[in-house]
Design a protein around this nucleic acid. Structure first.
Lengths: 77, 77
DNA sequence: CTCATTTATACCCTATAAGGTATAAATAAA
DNA sequence: TTTATTTATACCTTATAGGGTATAAATGAG
């Protein structure tokens, strides 16, 4: 499943013109981890996810279940 | 360290008049996990954290590092 | 103060996330 | 089409999170 988080990371990565390998290196996590993250694996460790999000000035936090945290566009309806 | 997430959960739990044991049972996670969560342990698994947040209508998501995601009331601004 | 409740720490075991390697499947450019 | 690049899956090992139990330290009521 493509979660909000997965989409967010993939999107930010594309914006930064990086491939998954670049990102994994920059974040200091394994390439496999970046892949799991972008595939929406739900059991990831928060600290590892944060290592990635920090690159983009973000971090994991509680968000209301329906709100669309200022990603940018999407939700067409 | 008391992270934003730790504070959020503890606060929501208090609001719901539950102790940690109640919360662990309601969320289907171990009591130890609730404790680690409220103590700000950084290496928690996202799925377990989400089991707790879901009780309050929240979930983990990317938030900008300095913003103070509405703790309880509303988004003022 | 004592006693009850709640929360925090420590020890231990089991299940599994992280990550490496290899491979396969897309995606894109020629 | 072929070939290169990127992304996805599978297998395996190692490190560790989750969680149970026990204990200790707070917190609070009397």
């Amino acid at each position: 499943m493509k979660t909000r988080l997965a989409t967010f990371v993939k999107d930010k990565r594309k914006q930064a013109a990086m491939n998954q390998e670049d990102l994994s290196f920059a974040a200091g996590v394994g390439l496999r981890f970046v892949r799991d993250l972008e595939q929406g694996k739900p059991t990831l460790r928060m600290d590892k996810v944060n290592q990635v999000l920090n690159l983009f000035g973000y971090e994991l936090g509680p968000v209301a279940q329906n709100r669309d945290e200022e990603s940018q566009s999407s939700v067409s309806e």
